[in-house]
Amino acid sequence: MPPSVKDVAALAGVSSSTVSNYLNHPHVLGAASRERVRDAIEQLGFVPNESARQLRAGSSTALALVLLDAWLPYFNDLSRGVEDVARGGGWSLFFSNSNRDAELERRNIDMFEAHRVQGIIIYPLGDVVPRLERLAGSGIRSVVIGPIASSPTVASVLFDDRGGGRLAGEHLLSLGRRRILFLGNPAVSQSNDRLAGLRDAVAGSGATVTVQEVSHLATEDGLSAAERIVTLAADERPDAVFAANDMVALGVLTQLLRNGIRVPDDIALVGFDDVDQAHQGVVPLTTVRQPGYAIGRAAGAALLQMLSDPSAPPPATTPFPAELIVRESTVGRRES
């Protein structure tokens, strides 16, 4: 006979109601009790009947994470942060990918509502706050990673994207660069904020900013964008490129080097995020560091705080500051 809740309770030295709370409402238990029950479950190989349990409890012990583009390395870091907090609190976590598709994003939210998750963390494409506020009415709390309008039920975790764009622009100006090309996606608010920061930096300097749209913010987009650059006469090319993320910047870097254009001598290059690949290339990439793992942890902690006290207003979180990481793609190789 498979182990039961009573067996787990006996091994853990707790009551059956404590085991039930661990399965249904883990946030009400202390860390020590959660650990004892978790260890007993693992030792016995106890597997709860999720369908029956959810019908009895009227809820699940699951949280959901809706990503904008799961294939980008930044979102791997962010996901690990959310997952570590969720699992540490005794929650399970489901993942989905909107793939920069508004309709798919809507269906992902619908799916998690149907599965009665207790909370949702989302890095959105569009304005999802009205929908999330309606979910709050049925007990599903949410955290948005990114800027939102003030909400009485939805929390947000912010990064200073505009400040990061400003840092990138100020750095390029300090190097004497005056023809700056920005590669971004206007459908993504964070990309627009990075562009706004760049424009803040160059205002009144005499430098120009040209914008080229890239659809998916992926390496292939950078390769394609740089194909156009290499067809231009040398005096018509930008002398600097600021990409809305590192993967686009790395695509640009690859294409420029393939065509004999020197980085940074001919064109300086700045990315955004500081993913691992940024420092691993032939020419290490100057970038704006965005701490994906820490942001994910902050979002997870905010959601668990909301679930522990559903009557409280959404927690206020301090925006994560931007940090410029200077490498060879803008300043060249430094003598040791």
Rank of each mutant, 00 (worst) to 15 (best):
M1N: 15
M1V: 15
P2V: 12
S4G: 11
K6N: 01
K6D: 04
K6Y: 00
V8E: 09
A9F: 12
A10M: 11
L11H: 07
S15C: 12
S16P: 08
S20C: 00
S20A: 09
N24G: 13
P26L: 10
V28L: 01
L29V: 06
A31Y: 06
A32M: 09
A40Q: 01
Q43E: 07
Q43G: 01
V47I: 08
V47E: 10
S51N: 04
T61C: 07
A62R: 10
A64T: 14
L65R: 13
V66Y: 04
L67Q: 03
W71P: 02
P73H: 10
Y74D: 14
Y74C: 06
F75C: 00
R80I: 06
E83A: 12
V85R: 04
V85M: 04
A86F: 05
A86K: 02
R87A: 12
G90R: 08
L93F: 14
F95L: 13
N99L: 03
E103M: 07
R106Q: 11
R106I: 01
I109Y: 13
I109T: 13
M111L: 11
A114I: 10
H115F: 10
R116S: 08
I121E: 01
I122F: 04
L125R: 11
G126S: 13
V128Q: 10
V128G: 11
P130W: 04
L132R: 03
L132D: 00
R134K: 14
I140V: 15
R141E: 10
V143N: 01
I145G: 04
G146C: 07
P147Y: 00
S150P: 04
T153N: 12
L158W: 02
D161V: 05
D161C: 07
R162H: 05
G164N: 07
L167G: 00
L173G: 01
L175W: 11
I180F: 13
L183Y: 15
N185F: 05
P186A: 13
A187P: 00
A187G: 02
S189M: 13
Q190C: 07
D200P: 12
A201W: 08
S205E: 13
G206A: 02
T210A: 15
S215R: 15
D221H: 03
G222W: 06
G222P: 00
S224W: 03
D235P: 08
A244G: 15
N245E: 01
D246T: 12
M247Q: 15
L250Q: 07
T254R: 08
G260M: 07
D265E: 15
D266P: 15
A268I: 13
L269C: 15
Q280I: 10
V282R: 11
V283W: 14
P284W: 08
T287R: 14
T287Q: 05
R289G: 00
G292E: 08
Y293N: 13
A294M: 06
A294V: 12
I295N: 07
I295S: 10
G296P: 12
A299K: 14
A299H: 11
G300Y: 09
Q305L: 06
D309P: 08
D309I: 09
P310D: 00
S311Q: 03
S311V: 03
P315Y: 00
A316V: 12
F320H: 09
P321H: 01
P321K: 00
P321L: 00
A322Y: 01
L324K: 10
V326G: 10
V326Q: 06
E328K: 03
V331Q: 09
V331P: 02
R334V: 12
E335A: 09
